[in-house]
């Protein structure tokens, strides 16, 4: 299965995977600690500007995230109802900033580099009998497949719209989950047939 990696090299391609993941974690943590509404808005706009400058010319990438818009509006509405507009805007700003930053990391980091960066962090898991290589592959796959799944959801929605002329309803989730499970089976077979689960990569 294939998820978008930016072939055209940006300066961010040259930064080590470990550094990028660390920066992502620190900045994301920073965003959760930022409570001032105006400050948050400025920070999010700064992230957006940084994002647009970095992926300059590859705007179509943003279209991948279109399906998230209703979700963000839903979260915002719920927050606005429960705790007021200011908090709602703050929550959405946080989410948007984190999504954009995470996307920059996936767009500019080869997956094997990502796995190599994660493996040492996960090594302590070995003490409880968990193989860090398998966990790092799982994490990398989740990161890589997120945009793919969003794309699949859009396709399902389009098929629905083509047949009914209406917006896709929530119950479309059931066949979508079935799609994901089938996809997971195929990917697992592909990994298995190349010996991932039987022999371990060592570094």
């Amino acid at each position: 299965m294939i998820a978008p990696y930016l072939t055209q090299k940006t300066w961010l391609h040259r930064v080590g995977a470990g550094h990028k993941l660390l920066a992502l974690a620190v900045i994301s943590l920073g965003f959760t600690q930022l409570y001032d509404g105006r400050g948050l808005l400025v920070a999010t706009l700064a992230v957006l500007a940084f994002y647009l400058v970095t992926i300059f010319g590859h705007w179509s990438r943003l279209r991948l995230y279109a399906p998230l818009v209703p979700l963000l509006i839903g979260i915002g509405a719920l927050q606005a109802y429960a705790s007021g507009w200011e908090l709602a805007i703050a929550s959405i700003a946080r989410l948007v900033a984190m999504i954009l930053l995470a996307d920059l990391v996936t767009a500019t980091t080869p997956m094997l580099k990502m796995m190599d960066a994660l493996a040492p962090v996960l090594r302590p898991l070995r003490r409880i009998g968990v193989d860090e290589n398998q966990v790092s592959l799982a994490v990398a796959l989740v990161i890589r497949f997120m945009p793919v799944l969003l794309n699949e959801w859009t396709k399902r929605g389009e098929a629905w719209r083509a047949r009914t002329g209406r917006r896709p309803p929530l119950r479309l989730l059931a066949p979508f989950v079935a799609d994901i499970l089938r996809l997971a089976d195929h990917v697992a077979e592909a990994l298995d047939s190349r010996g991932f689960s039987t022999k371990r990569s060592k570094d």
Binding site: P110, L141, H186, G195, F196
Partner: peptide, 18 residues
């Protein structure tokens, strides 16, 4: 379904690492 990695070199390297 078979290609799990984002670039050609990684796709080939994965099997070798296994």
């Amino acid at each position: 379904h078979q290609i799990v990695f984002p670039t050609g070199a990684e796709e080939l390297a994965f099997g070798l690492r296994c």
